[in-house]
């Protein structure tokens, strides 16, 4: 599709049963795509934040924002791709750790400022936080060693406050 780009959309929603399925149902019903989705409570009681990433061209992303805003339980919607924002994702990566690779893996972990959170005779589980580029770069380096499993949160994001 013409001019398709990745958008990170964040929204505040009423923390009520069914809200997530309203949001997700909107995407599936209207043929919008969801690449990742992250939901958790905020500090305000009864309000949750949903962060999702999608690929869309400009008119479609305008339609997505409007449709989300139209849901009764959605309080506020923002496309953070258009704003100054901080975007982070966390991943847990279980990598094969053969004796000849163990030192190399630890060096990479150090360089990327990750943490090893689980160690076995034949594996490490690495916790990494960063933007999409950092995760990609790390994965590229770990792949040759053998990535056994991976769990990613998908991006979460906040708009930067005025300085």
């Amino acid at each position: 599709m013409q001019g398709e780009a990745k958008h990170i959309i964040t929204m505040l929603v009423d923390n009520e049963p069914g809200v997530l399925s309203r949001v997700v149902g909107l995407f599936s019903g209207r043929g919008f795509n969801i690449e990742s989705l992250c939901v958790a409570e905020t500090v305000t009681p009864g309000v949750s934040r949903i962060t999702l990433s999608t690929k869309a061209n400009p008119p479609l992303v305008e339609q997505i924002e409007k449709q989300l805003n139209k849901l009764i339980n959605v309080i506020k919607v923002r496309d953070l791709t258009r704003e100054e924002s901080v975007i982070r994702e966390m991943a847990l990566i279980c990598v094969k750790a053969a004796p000849e690779h163990r030192a190399e893996i630890l060096r990479i972990v150090d360089i990327f400022r990750c943490q090893v959170v689980d160690v076995g005779l034949e594996h490490y589980i690495i916790e990494v936080t960063g933007d999409e580029g950092k995760l990609k770069a790390l994965l590229n380096l770990l792949k040759p060693m053998g990535v056994k499993k991976i769990a990613r949160t998908g991006p979460v994001a906040l708009m930067r406050e005025p300085k």
Binding site: P17, G25, I72
Partner: peptide, 14 residues
Amino acid sequence: IVGITRPCTKHNYL
């Protein structure tokens, strides 16, 4: 029925 009618109501409640 709330699940069934979610996409064809303006809003619904249980």
